[in-house]
Design a protein around this nucleic acid. Structure first.
Ligand SMILES: [Mn+2]
Ligand SMILES: [Mn+2]
Ligand SMILES: [Zn+2]
Ligand SMILES: [Zn+2]
Lengths: 145, 145
DNA sequence: TTATTTTTGCGACATATTTGCAATATTTAG
DNA sequence: CTAAATATTGCAAATATGTCGCAAAAATAA
């Protein structure tokens, strides 16, 4: 049950000189295997298991040690695990129903991003791609109406 | 002096059933021909020409009718005009000094984005690409130290 | 287990964004 | 152009989001 992601998570905490705590494990598990999730949702879900301040501190720490990062979806940002704990991917986000569809990493796209950065003598450490529009379902509904 | 962008802006307001007001024109002009700008800067610059609440309402409206949109740069977001009023482009954002470098549209990249959306039967209407890292200047400084 | 170190919850702040409403500006109708 | 009708604005107050200090509780080290 103590799967490899959690083991890696614990190791990451330890090697960065941080304790393995209940709150951190809970938040990690909330993030694991999920689509990006907003602070608000995390807060609502964890209401009686951890405090707001702790959540912010936890997410800040997760970013610092490369466990999670923020993805920008429209106006707001959401949190998800980094590529170290989930495969690198991007998202299609439906502006109608709010669905977020993960898209598998595309070698050509990744190569291009690096190439463009290089052209500008920019040392890219990460990137995010957000594509907004209508998912196939919403598209069908729109057409019918 | 009433250049084509402003004319298009006014038309956009009208066709969406909104008035052409002093505040909206001021904000539009602040956005025009600039790099993405933060709410705070807009607020500071327009301090005595419009109110905070009006600015938020204005930006919300601009997003609704496709005049401006938010660009997410790390934790923060900034506002810039949409492709309808400025050439489509993306940004490299330096995590050290905060500099935002616009990158010219890249046909190959744009084509790829569309292609990927199509593969997922997703009808993309817009996209944003955020590349974070170190600008050449900050990179040099880091190396020296 | 006890001592030491780190993290948490809580309440108080600080900042960001939203809202109701009366006053003012813009648009429409004549 | 003016008067009436409608939409927008400024202001003050309400919410929402994010941060901080500190004593209590939990985790780690001894
Ligand atoms: Mn990628
Ligand atoms: Mn593009
Ligand atoms: Zn949808
Ligand atoms: Zn820089």
């Amino acid at each position: 049950m103590d799967d490899s992601a959690i083991r890696l998570f614990k190791t990451t905490l330890r090697t960065n000189n941080h304790s393995v705590t209940k709150t951190r494990l809970i938040v990690f598990n909330l993030l694991k295997g999920q689509e990006p999730i907003s602070m608000n949702s995390l807060l609502r879900i964890g209401k009686n298991r951890f405090d707001r301040a702790s959540l912010y501190r936890t997410i800040n720490l997760f970013e610092e040690i490369g466990v999670a990062h923020r993805v920008n979806l429209g106006w707001k940002y959401k949190i998800e695990l980094t590529d170290k704990f989930a495969h690198h991917h991007h998202h299609l986000s439906c502006t109608n129903c709010g669905r977020v569809i993960p898209i598998r990493e595309d070698d050509e796209l990744e190569k291009l991003i690096i190439q463009i950065s290089d052209t500008h003598n920019f040392s890219a450490s990460k990137h995010q791609i957000e594509i907004q529009g209508l998912c196939s379902k919403c598209m069908r509904l729109k057409v019918v109406m």
